[in-house]
């Protein structure tokens, strides 16, 4: 059986909120290392990969591998019933028909309990190769969100160019063009504002802004976001969570001329 207790419902609320417009029905794969989810969007252009390690829960118990097929719209409805600071416990039997969610207020004696019916989801699982990326950029997640939103007003695509000079986000559309360039930057007082660029060779790739703006819904989960790029491979956008848990998005590039 599965029993996983989260100190704050807010974490799961934010994760589901960040991915529910990209993917609809997903398997939450539970085993003794934690709860994982991998799902592609309908167009097979973007992929969500979530890992909530067992250390992110206290306690965490999962005796055998269980796949919980959950519709994220249903999960959102139930998670709205939890206060952000509620303690959340997920429970399921070994061959479950439902997943049980319990919300407890740490401050009062309220205890709410909901069951969500599970679905059989036949999901394609993609093997993501270990990649040594040519460029890794860590930057404030709010800054990345603003850049994506700003450029989307002009164009549907953005080119991301990373050189020794810095990283340049550029677009051009019907009304004109625009770009934002960031250089490495260290803020000792506020390290969450740092921009760190780690480059082994220059990269230039083009991506659809629609998906990037969608990924940025995860900005509330982490002050910093990490972008990993290599020429001609999908972009990795990573929001690191506590205890080595993470929410990652992969986006296939636009290619050819």
């Amino acid at each position: 059986m599965l029993e996983a207790r989260l100190e704050q419902a807010n974490l799961l609320k934010k994760v589901v909120d960040a991915i529910k417009d990209l993917v609809q029905d997903c398997n939450f794969d539970c085993n003794d290392s934690g709860i994982a989810l991998q799902a592609m969007d309908n167009s097979h252009v973007a992929l969500v990969s979530m890992m909530l390690k067992s250390e992110s829960f206290s306690p965490f118990r999962c005796d055998r591998n269980i796949a919980l097929g959950i519709n994220l719209t249903s999960l959102t409805k139930v998670l709205r019933c939890a206060a952000n600071e509620d303690i959340l416990t997920l429970k399921a039997e070994d061959a479950p028909d439902v997943v049980n969610l319990v919300f407890e207020s740490a401050e009062s004696d309220r205890l709410s309990e909901y069951d969500i019916k599970l679905m059989d989801i036949d999901q394609e699982h993609l093997g993501i190769p270990e990649t040594e990326y040519a460029a890794t950029i860590s930057m404030p997640s709010a800054e990345f969100q603003k850049i994506c939103r700003d450029l989307m007003a002009l164009s549907e695509s953005v080119s991301i160019e990373c050189t020794k000079e810095g990283v340049k986000f550029a677009c051009s559309g019907d009304i004109g063009s625009g770009s934002v360039t960031l250089r490495s930057h260290t803020n000792v007082e506020k390290p969450q504002l740092n921009v760190e660029i780690d480059l082994s060779e220059p990269v230039a790739l083009t991506f659809s802004l629609k998906y990037l703006v969608n990924f940025c819904k995860a900005s509330g989960l982490s002050e910093q976001v990490r972008l990993c790029l290599s020429n001609e491979v999908p972009l990795l956008v990573e929001y690191a969570l506590s205890n080595n848990s993470y929410l990652r998005f992969y986006l296939a590039p636009k290619i050819g001329d």
């Binding site: 167009s43 190769p129 296939a252 001329d257």
Partner: peptide, 14 residues
């Protein structure tokens, strides 16, 4: 113009 690739081009199915 560039065209949108899909992930299947890069990631194999398991």
């Amino acid at each position: 113009p560039k065209s949108q690739a899909t992930l299947g081009k890069f990631f194999g199915t398991q």
